[in-house]
Simulated assay, not measured.
Amino acid sequence: MLNQWYDRTIAFLPNLILIAIILVLTLIISRRSQTFVYRLAERTQAPPEITDLLGRLARIGIVAVGTLLVLDRLNLSGAVLSFVAGLGIAGIIIGFALQDIVKQFAAGVLLLMLRPFRVGDDVKIGAFEGRVMQVQLRATVLKTLGGDEVQIPNADVYSTAIVNTSRYELHRRTIALTLPPESDLGRSRAALMQILTSVPGVVANPAPESAATGLVGKTVQLEARFWVDERASNVD
């Protein structure tokens, strides 16, 4: 009996050594794969949320492969495959039940990867306008102009037109004025242009311009159009 146990142990020893090697390599490769993802993310300037998610997925994937290899050496691969198949069926059922959550998660990942806006940007998303406070995997959080917090589901954000007013420095502004009947249109336009060019943030190129847009009774409607550099602007 003891001899049989000894013979089996000696016969299994190569497998045992191979299992130990697989486990060590799995740990090393899983850690290095996560480090590789972090370094790649730094080069591509990927968002921290995506970097962390991809790093964890890479590590989990390597560990899963290593575990399957170990179980195969233990002659348990058949049972594992049956278990994985069962998990696949259960995953499909759970996926149908949680499809809305999965949809929000997928949209959140796409938003973090494509980055149509960043935290701190002023945006208009559908009927909401405000500053981006957070981009979560489920929802995008805005602080509205009135100081309220709005959480917009990421699937809605991804499928809606987004206006990012913080993307570019220059923005065109328009001012409408009503001139009394006795006003001199030429002098009024010249005075308006002089005032605009003296305002910090109003750029000279493209140059400000003004034009009469119509008459209301005896008054003249004057409209001024100019471009503002938001980095140096005091114009609201």
Rank of each mutant, 00 (worst) to 15 (best):
V220C: 09
I93L: 15
A46P: 01
E149D: 04
R173H: 08
R43H: 03
Q45K: 05
Y158I: 12
T160G: 00
E182V: 14
F12L: 01
S33I: 08
I62K: 02
V65T: 10
L98P: 03
V132T: 08
D156K: 12
V63C: 06
L53S: 01
I21K: 04
L76Q: 12
I50W: 01
L2M: 09
P206V: 02
T44F: 09
L25C: 02
P153W: 01
P208T: 04
L142M: 11
A64N: 11
L137M: 11
Y6H: 13
I22W: 00
E149A: 08
L57W: 14
A90P: 00
V37K: 00
T26N: 03
L137G: 06
L27M: 10
A85N: 04
V228T: 08
F226L: 06
S77V: 11
L185E: 14
G201I: 12
A20C: 07
I19E: 00
V150G: 02
T35V: 10
R131K: 15
G86F: 14
F117Y: 06
V203D: 01
A11K: 00
Q194F: 08
D156T: 14
F117D: 00
N234D: 07
A106N: 08
I22M: 03
I162T: 04
V132A: 04
G88C: 14
T67W: 04
I89H: 04
L114A: 03
W5A: 13
L177R: 00
P14A: 05
G78C: 05
V37M: 04
N75Q: 12
P208Y: 00
V220L: 10
I152E: 06
F36E: 07
L25N: 03
H171K: 13
D184L: 05
A211H: 08
L112K: 03
T51E: 12
L13T: 02
D100H: 12
A127I: 13
E149H: 12
G61Q: 07
V199I: 15
E223G: 06
D148V: 09
L114H: 06
G147W: 09
G61W: 10
I93K: 02
R31A: 09
I28R: 03
A207Y: 02
R73N: 15
